[in-house]
Write a protein that binds this DNA or RNA. Structure first.
Lengths: 342, 342
DNA sequence: CTGAAAGCGCTTACAG
DNA sequence: CTGAAAGCGCTTACAG
């Protein structure tokens, strides 16, 4: 029933090594034999077992990817970058979806290792001590994408979240906004939460803008959280007088825009919104969302290059955080205020 | 450098089989030995090679998934369903991204097979003869998700696209629309293109509505295609008098809504739109999109169950197309017309 | 309870 | 040009 290299050898009346050679170094085998073997292999629908082969022969490198949640809007773009780079470099990629469950994430790390990954790309979720405990025993290079772990001496590729947040506020200020609110991620999230908030806070100070707690609301990055947080912000508008809101994710920005709409106000005429991510949908909503672009595909590709370098440097791979350039994508959700309104 | 079961055995002063037992049937080995081996394995950071193991022992089934384009909005949901079901059933999943390239798709099929997939879920792209030529030699069950291949005797899980399109028109008619346009996928696409158009056409006949070529425009499912197609439809509005448009994908529907907006018209007051898919974003745009829901996660899960059944039935797996129920999700993009407007 | 032997499907020196 | 032998990392009867 099961057809292996051996079945082919028997049918063709040659030895197993000969069949192997037909597939791996055809030039070493006599033309007639080769063609006979090929024909037999074909008629038997033989496919070599790549896993058995990998046991003996040097194999294509395998990149393991740990996804925090595969459904995330940006994950597809990140993975797409990983896949493109891997295809170009003749590597295979193995994916594991943690489904937002950190226990499952830890299992995933072990799974990827046991499946012979030669390196791992760990995405988006903050590195916890429990994760690092595992990572450090893996003895294969691990690179972080869209998250950071400098305290563990891990290398990561991301944008400078703090600076990007600072720039978002700067953009708003340049357009005349002086009262700016923020919808932030949770502070426990050191990357997309805390550091984006810090950049925001720093910018307010830098530009000498007022700040009170009523200018801030929180959400877990999803649409409905953005909606609820905006409702909160709107309820304090009499005291805060905000004319613009910076949001820690595009999805929350879109929720916020809807909330504004439902309150009978308009974006950007009454309130301006600037998002964060530049996921594909931010260009599909009306008004189109002005936002901070994260180069997801590029981050995926850089992560792959890093792993490749780490293998060659075998052992002492450089650590540190590599900031890839972010950029402001100007679209339709931010209005320019005339000066006398400040 | 490389630590295998053998390294552990040597360090622990036991044989290789004993180490193997410690990991696979710990109850068979003496407690002290077991604990010593565990300790050594731990200190050496030993992880068993699951691929070598699979060569000898009965392994967890592997499901290969061929994605047509991983970035597609709905693919994440489909894959999420596959992953959940696979995790529950103790199966592993292997993913290959064709990146819209049918040559790469064919390579992917072979890749998945050679990597020892026990079954394959083939997604979304129509089955071509070249694909089937490969599929038929794989000798493992292949199930289609969101596409169809009854001419090849393949089993598939999807919704009844034709019926769903018919229902979309029915919904519009029930709300008083008599002049209905469509933005269709390409006719060469037998699933999302041709069959949805057929359902549309049939419904027009069934409800006795007029039809001319000017009521139809085409696009490749993306936002910009929807936009362009809508511009086309709008340019003939003086003759077609359409008050509603049925669209073959949500993404095109969203593009169409933007086009209407840019022409100074409003959805749904001036033109109603009904989409197809119910991807996550259709609930995030304004107006929220009324659309046909495809149960992506469920389709993913059913595909997994099918493969499981096919393995047990070993050999003669049932073929045929299984239609999962679609549903109309009523949101904000369709207006109810008063009768005298018809 | 533990080890020696055989083997999973393949590859790669080594002879001839 | 081709085969016999050894081995990749592991597991599983079979003895003892």
């Amino acid at each position: 029933m099961k057809v292996t290299i051996r079945t082919v050898a028997e049918q063709a009346g040659v030895s197993v090594p000969t069949v192997s050679r037909v597939f791996n170094s055809p030039e070493l085998v006599n033309k007639v034999t080769r063609e006979r073997v090929m024909a037999i292999a074909d008629s038997l629908h033989f496919f070599p077992n790549d896993r058995a082969r990998a046991l003996r022969a040097p194999k294509r490198p395998i990149i393991g990817v740990l996804a925090w949640q595969i459904k995330d809007f940006f994950f597809g773009e990140l993975l797409s970058g990983i896949n493109k780079a891997a295809a170009r470099e003749d590597m295979d990629v193995l994916l594991f979806d943690a489904q937002l469950d950190s226990k499952r994430g830890m299992d995933g790390l072990v799974f990827l290792k046991r499946q012979q990954s030669d390196g791992i790309i760990f995405t988006s979720s903050p590195v916890l001590d429990e994760y690092y405990a595992i990572i450090s025993r893996l003895h294969i290079p691990v690179v972080l994408a869209l998250t950071e772990g400098s305290q563990y001496n891990l290398c990561s590729f991301k944008i400078d979240d703090r600076k990007a947040a600072f720039d978002a506020v700067g953009y708003l200020v340049a357009r005349g906004h002086r009262h700016i609110g923020m919808i932030s991620g949770p502070m426990e999230d050191t990357i997309a939460g805390n550091s984006r908030f810090s950049g925001f806070r720093e910018a307010l100070r830098h530009y000498n803008l007022t700040y009170t707690d009523e200018q801030l609301a929180f959400g877990q990055y999803r649409y409905e959280h953005g909606y609820a947080a905006m409702a909160d912000l709107l309820s304090h508008r009499d005291v805060t007088a905000i004319t613009a809101v910076f949001t820690a994710s595009d999805e929350m920005a879109i929720g916020a825009m809807r909330c504004i709409h439902d309150h009978g106000l308009r974006v950007p005429e009454d309130i301006s919104i600037i998002g964060f991510d530049n996921v594909a949908v931010s260009d599909m909503v009306t008004p189109k969302l002005t936002t901070i672009m994260q180069p997801f595909e590029r981050i995926g590709m850089e992560s792959v290059s890093y792993l490749k370098k780490a293998w060659n440097a075998s052992g002492d791979s450089s650590s540190g955080t590599y900031f890839l350039p972010h950029r402001i994508i100007e679209r339709e959700s931010v209005a320019t205020l005339s000066y006398d309104s400040s």
